[in-house]
Design a protein around this nucleic acid. Structure first.
Lengths: 152, 152
DNA sequence: CTTCAAACAGAAAATATTTCTGTAAAAGTA
DNA sequence: TACTTTTACAGAAATATTTTCTGTTTGAAG
């Protein structure tokens, strides 16, 4: 699973735009269709390319508020963590959830219509989880950067 | 720019998999190709669909460390903010950067190979920015959830 | 040398997207 | 009411893309 320079070029292009055709890519990297096709299929099979997704505009969907929630659990046990994790996976407004080091246990990123929805989410969905002890909210005032492009 | 139920179904499908064909979508929502095609093009044109991207596996690219940086600037002026923003946009390891409320000014998400790279990034790239006064690092121990799917 | 595998090119076959033509229902107008 | 316009959709033809197949070249292994 070693990536050579051609693989990396292909990945950089596909990260930018999943709708580039094989021909587009072939032209951009000066190859014929065959090797581009073979490499893309190999990268998919190996799991380097996980999936192709559409990025939607959150504001146009009515999601005008982004917040980070710093969550502390009641206990640090495996069962508590697992219970929390499962609950989070069911919540569509939680787009990111990481178990972290520091003064709290989890860092969550929430995308939601407005402050009222957030109030509801906070009071009725998150703080009511039996595993949750403390929530500290950090409000996003302005988005500077948000990309799915990973450094290659 | 009102989204009806059919638009929403299409968006939900495309968020999941940008490689669903028009036929796939048409079958799943019981329509012919034409309206599906027309609606997708309209959603693209209106900017509801921003772009199509490939999601790569960060570990398979050698990026084994994720961290959040909570950054405080030296001043709160416009020029300071703008200078910082511009610098951040140039840094490929910063995949997320938001100006936030609270005890610090910015929340950054960094994806990077390992602790050594992070040390270098922290010491040589981030803390050396003239706008940066303070950096508090939160290390991700384990990723629970990470999705590009927005609630519709 | 000879064989084998990897990387590529070109072309044919199978699919998908795009464009075109047309119908039906709903909304607006005289 | 009668007429026009618009919207949403269906089906089919044209175009483009992906997938598969055949074959060449190159370099490494026996």
């Amino acid at each position: 699973m070693v990536l050579d320079d051609i693989d990396k070029k292909i990945l950089r292009l596909l990260q930018e735009n999943a709708h580039y055709t094989l021909k587009d890519i072939a032209n951009k990297i000066n190859l014929s269709l065959t090797p581009v096709h073979d490499r893309v299929k190999r990268l998919e099979k190996e799991g380097v390319i996980e999936k192709y997704v559409s990025i939607l505009n959150k504001k146009k969907l009515g999601n005008n508020l982004t917040v980070y929630c710093q969550v502390t659990l009641t206990k640090q046990t495996y069962d508590t963590s697992e219970g929390f994790n499962q609950a989070i996976l069911e919540m569509p407004e939680v787009v990111e959830c990481n178990y972290v080091s520091g003064n709290f246990d989890y860092m969550l990123k929430i995308i939601i219509p407005d402050m009222e929805s957030y109030h509801h989410f906070h009071q009725k969905k998150l703080s009511t989880l039996p595993e949750v002890s403390l929530i500290n909210t950090v409000f996003v005032i302005s988005e500077v950067k948000s990309t799915t492009v990973l450094p290659i």
